[in-house]
Design a protein around this nucleic acid. Sequence first.
DNA 1: CAGATTGCGTGCGCCGCGCACGCTATCCTT
DNA 2: AAGGATAGCGTGCGCGGCGCACGCAATCTG
Lengths: 149, 149
Amino acid sequence: MPDDVGHEIADALGTLLKRGTRAHLYGRLTEGLGEAVDETTYPVLSGLARTGPCSAADLAGEIGLDRSGVTRRATRLEEAGLLRREPHPDDRRATLLALTETGQRVVQTTRQRLATLIEASLTSWPPEEAQSFARQLHRFVATGPFTES
Amino acid sequence: MPDDVGHEIADALGTLLKRGTRAHLYGRLTEGLGEAVDETTYPVLSGLARTGPCSAADLAGEIGLDRSGVTRRATRLEEAGLLRREPHPDDRRATLLALTETGQRVVQTTRQRLATLIEASLTSWPPEEAQSFARQLHRFVATGPFTES
DNA sequence: CAGATTGCGTGCGCCGCGCACGCTATCCTT
DNA sequence: AAGGATAGCGTGCGCGGCGCACGCAATCTG
């Protein structure tokens, strides 16, 4: 492998992981979706859509946040009607966090917005090149030094 | 272009931009390089290496941070001997931030560490595939919805 | 049935960050 | 040439997010 491949990818990751890009991007995705949906509550919605109904502790591990933070954000989203707390059927201590219908629609909207943004920046790419790039990026992220612990 | 390309890239970006990955990665890169070098001061060093000697305000724009934050981090790095404040030759108001020899070595170390980490996760890739992926990633990041403003 | 454990919500303290002020040096206008 | 306007810098201050730890309720265990 050429020696500058690592450095070239490093540069790209540098601008990608640059401070503010996450807030900037998530801000665009959640724009106009209500007061409760912003760049801080978005990971809760998105993660909950991935995992399905689960406890706050599990969701905390999923999105890399403390359990207390998830609880607070979940409360905000619950008041906005995007998320529902339902008692665990078998354990009356536990409460499951689950998306409401509206919550699922919001997640779907943000996901579609992100996909549209991405595809918009790939319009000039040859289709099969975009396809292979998507697969390679997916694989790279999965096997890279990013999946912590 | 297939419809799921955007969604596949979106998933990858999700895990990449996940909260904590930056701190985790930068923490690994700066491990054992002294008290002053951590995931918060790393962008200052790295950005200063990119731009060359410049003012705190310019560097702030470069790394997406407020001018005051850059000043504080610069002070920490200056006390550690990694960074030097030198008066602007033409304007006696301005102070230029510049890396010292040690600072440049530290940046070089972290950059090499990152490149090594990346290349380590690409060992099983065919060389020309890694090469094309690097170029595509670079292009994607440059033209994507990440370069704010 | 009583102590230990687990899950949850919340009060508290810490720290990063942006805003705004004061100070000094430079520019501009007359 | 001189004084007001402006730019650059450092710093005090307040806000907000986040992790820790406590208290309470429910469950497990011997």
